[in-house]
Simulated scan of single mutants.
Amino acid sequence: MRLVLLVLPIALLAGVGRAAEPKPSPAYEHCLASPGGTSTVGMVACANMELEAQNARLNRAYQGAMSRLRLPRQKAALQKAQRAWIAFRDADCASQEDSEWSKLKQISANDCVLSRTIQRADELEKFRQAQ
């Protein structure tokens, strides 16, 4: 048996496995650009509004993905993965926030939850679409 090494340019490998940057809704961008959206309180309010919308989108995407599965074991596997993902998202983003840290760190933690939620909704919307 002969081993053949395949050498790929680093530029080609750089994009492998990378997801596109999560994109919030235009309503979120508009909220942040509004006069009230530039303050810390305004940013938090805008993020909360967007997170509510993205959570609804995530739930719709999850239900859609579940409906595309036929077998109970497939549904159980997706349910297990989703529960693990929620636990990871919440724990990882919570690690970025502490009451002793600045308000900017709290905004960063909120952004973490929002970005991860958008990304997961994107993934679930594509889940088994081609099959």
Rank of each mutant, 00 (worst) to 15 (best):
L58K: 00
E125P: 01
V7H: 12
R128Q: 06
N48R: 13
R2Y: 12
I86P: 06
V4I: 04
R68H: 10
R120P: 01
M66T: 09
R73E: 15
D90W: 09
G36K: 11
A19V: 11
R68Y: 08
R60H: 01
P9L: 15
I10K: 14
G42K: 05
A61F: 00
P26K: 09
Q106P: 07
L51A: 04
G64W: 10
R73W: 11
A47H: 08
V113H: 14
L3D: 15
E97S: 11
R57E: 04
S99L: 11
A27R: 01
L69R: 02
V113Q: 15
D92F: 08
L58W: 01
A77T: 02
R89H: 14
Q82F: 01
I10N: 15
R89A: 11
C46E: 11
K105Q: 11
G42W: 02
A65E: 07
A53M: 05
M66E: 11
G17D: 04
A65R: 07
A94I: 04
V44C: 12
A81I: 07
S115N: 07
L114P: 02
L51V: 06
Q106M: 11
A45V: 14
A121V: 02
G64N: 10
L78F: 02
D90A: 14
I86G: 09
A76L: 08
P24N: 07
V41R: 12
V4F: 05
Y62S: 00
S115I: 01
E29Q: 07
D122A: 03
A84P: 03
A91E: 15
S39N: 02
K23T: 15
R116E: 12
A33I: 06
G15E: 11
L58I: 01
L3Q: 14
T40Q: 06
P26N: 10
Q74R: 10
A81W: 06
L3I: 15
V113K: 13
N59Q: 06
V16H: 08
R70N: 10
C93E: 03
W101K: 15
Y62R: 01
L78T: 03
R18Y: 06
R68G: 15
E21T: 15
L104V: 12
P72W: 03
F127S: 00
E125Q: 00
W101L: 13
Y62I: 02
L32T: 03
S39E: 00
A130V: 11
K105F: 11
R68E: 15
Q74I: 13
N55S: 09
S102C: 09
E123S: 13
I107D: 06
R128E: 09
R73K: 14
L13P: 03
A33Q: 07
C112D: 00
E125R: 00
S34D: 03
E52G: 10
G17N: 05
A45R: 13
R70V: 09
L78Q: 00
K75T: 11
F88H: 15
A84V: 06
G42L: 04
S39H: 00
